[in-house]
Amino acid sequence: MFEITLSSFIRIVTVGFLAYVGLVFFLRISGKRTLTKLNAFDLVVTVALGSTLATVLLSKDNTLLEGLTAFALLIAMQYVMTFLAVRSKGFSKFVKSEPRLLYFNGTFLEDTMKKERINEVEILQAIRNQGKGSLEEVQAVVLETDGSMSVIQGEPGNTLANVKSKIDI
C-alpha cells in the first residue's frame, strides 16, 4: 500500500514531466478557448484532460505516446466543436444550452426553476455570494450555460437579450 519501487518512481516522474509538458504545449497551440467552461461540453473536455493525465501517470498499461495522442484528440475535438458552434446557429443550439432567467424584479420564476432543478435556496446563495444582503438589491438572476448563476443589480438593460424567459423583460 505504501510501497513504491525505484523504477516505478522514475517512470512516474519522467512520464509525468513529459505528459505535463505535452499537455501545456497542446493547450498553448489550441488557444484560450480550450479551457473555458462556457458550456457542459467544455467542462467534459477539461475533466477528460485531467483524467487522461492521471491515467498516463499511474497506469503502466498506457504509454506516454498514447496519452499525448489522447490529449491531441480531445483538444482537436474541442476545437472542431467550437469552430462549428461559432459558424452554425443550429449546431450551437445542439451543443450549448440557453441561459435561463430564474428571478426577475422580486419574482422567483417557479416554472423555470423546476425545469432547471434549481431551488430558491440556491438562488439566495448565489445572491449572497455576490455580497448582496437583500433581494431589493437584485433585479435578475440568470442560470448561465455553464451552470453558474449571474446576479444582476440595477436595470439589466441588454445583457438579458439572449436569456430565455417566459416573462417580458
Rank of each mutant, 00 (worst) to 15 (best):
T46K: 05
R100V: 12
A72K: 02
K96F: 01
G90P: 15
K93H: 08
I118H: 14
T145P: 06
E144C: 03
V45R: 12
L65E: 11
N62F: 13
G147S: 08
A48I: 09
K132S: 12
K93W: 04
T52H: 11
D111E: 13
L73A: 05
I118V: 15
V86A: 10
D61H: 12
L101F: 05
R100T: 13
V95F: 01
A126H: 03
L143T: 04
I118P: 15
L102H: 12
I118N: 15
E144D: 12
L109I: 09
L57V: 06
Q130N: 06
L43H: 02
T46E: 08
S59H: 10
L135M: 04
L73Y: 02
D61A: 07
Y79F: 04
M77F: 11
K93I: 05
E116D: 10
I75C: 04
G106W: 09
T112N: 05
V121A: 04
T55S: 04
T145V: 02
V45T: 10
G67W: 10
G133S: 03
S59C: 08
A54I: 02
V45Y: 10
M81A: 06
A72I: 02
M113T: 03
L64E: 03
S51I: 09
P99A: 01
A72C: 01
V45S: 07
G67E: 12
K114D: 13
F108P: 05
L143H: 02
E144Y: 12
L135H: 02
L57A: 12
T82H: 02
V45N: 11
L109P: 06
E98K: 09
A72G: 00
E98Y: 06
G90F: 13
A76G: 11
R117C: 04
K132R: 14
Y103Q: 11
L73P: 01
E122C: 01
V56E: 00
Q78I: 00
T82G: 00
L58R: 02
V138W: 09
I75E: 11
I75T: 10
G131N: 10
L84T: 11
